[in-house]
Amino acid sequence: MIDISSHVIGVLKPLGITVAFQELPINATVPNQYITFLEINTNPALEAGDVEEETKRLIQVNIWSKTNYHQIVEGTRKLLESKGFERTFEHDVPKQEGDSHFNKVLRFVFFDEY
């Protein structure tokens, strides 16, 4: 089983923006554009004789930007899909008063083999 946090950060590195597990580090300067992600759910996907052979992992990626984030969304989708992630869901989070960034949510499933 892979370290999903390191894997996602490595896959998205070519975007050239900050990628962090769940949140930016405390006291970090908030960049104009960045990505956070988390693992929502993990389930056995394939078992053989009470042994888990494959794990289904649901990952949520949040793209944060003060400006148009279309290129980051497209780049994120392409990079993750090129490494076996399958997009299952995508939506814009409505911006509310006081929000500093726009937010796009993407969810992917990843099948992790042992």
Score class of each variant (00 low, 15 high):
A48S: 07
W64C: 10
I17D: 14
V8T: 09
L15D: 12
R77V: 13
H70C: 09
V19Q: 04
V61D: 09
E52G: 10
K83Y: 14
A20V: 13
F89M: 02
T36K: 06
I2E: 07
A45Y: 09
F85S: 03
E54T: 14
V61N: 04
A45D: 03
H7T: 06
I26P: 01
P44K: 14
G84N: 10
L58M: 05
V109C: 00
R107I: 05
G98W: 04
D112Y: 11
Y34K: 07
F108E: 00
E52R: 00
T29F: 12
K83L: 09
K104P: 00
I35S: 09
W64L: 13
K83C: 11
Y34V: 01
H91K: 06
I2P: 02
G49K: 00
T18G: 10
R107K: 09
E81Q: 04
H101V: 14
T36F: 01
D50C: 13
F110N: 07
L12M: 09
R77M: 07
E81L: 02
E113Q: 13
E113T: 15
P14C: 15
A20Y: 15
T29R: 04
E52K: 03
P25L: 14
L24W: 10
K83D: 13
E23A: 15
K56F: 12
F102Y: 10
D99P: 01
L46S: 12
V105P: 05
N103F: 03
I72D: 01
E52Q: 08
G84P: 01
W64I: 11
T67K: 02
K56Y: 10
I9Y: 03
L79P: 08
E86L: 15
G84I: 12
D3K: 02
A45N: 14
V61W: 01
N68Q: 13
L58P: 05
H7K: 15
D112G: 00
A45R: 10
S6V: 08
N27M: 06
H101M: 10
F21W: 15
Q60Y: 07
I63R: 02
L58I: 15
G10Q: 10
R77A: 03
I17R: 06
I72C: 03
I40K: 03
R107Y: 03
L79E: 01
S100T: 13
P44V: 08
I17G: 08
A48E: 03
H7S: 08
V30Y: 08
T55Y: 08
E39M: 06
L38T: 07
V11S: 04
G84Q: 03
K104S: 08
Q71H: 14
K13E: 15
L38F: 13
T76M: 09
G10F: 13
A28I: 01
F110L: 07
H101G: 06
N27A: 03
F37W: 12
E90L: 08
V61I: 12
T36H: 10
F108V: 04
T18F: 04
N103Q: 11
G10V: 07
I40A: 14
N43R: 10
I40W: 06
G49R: 01
E39A: 05
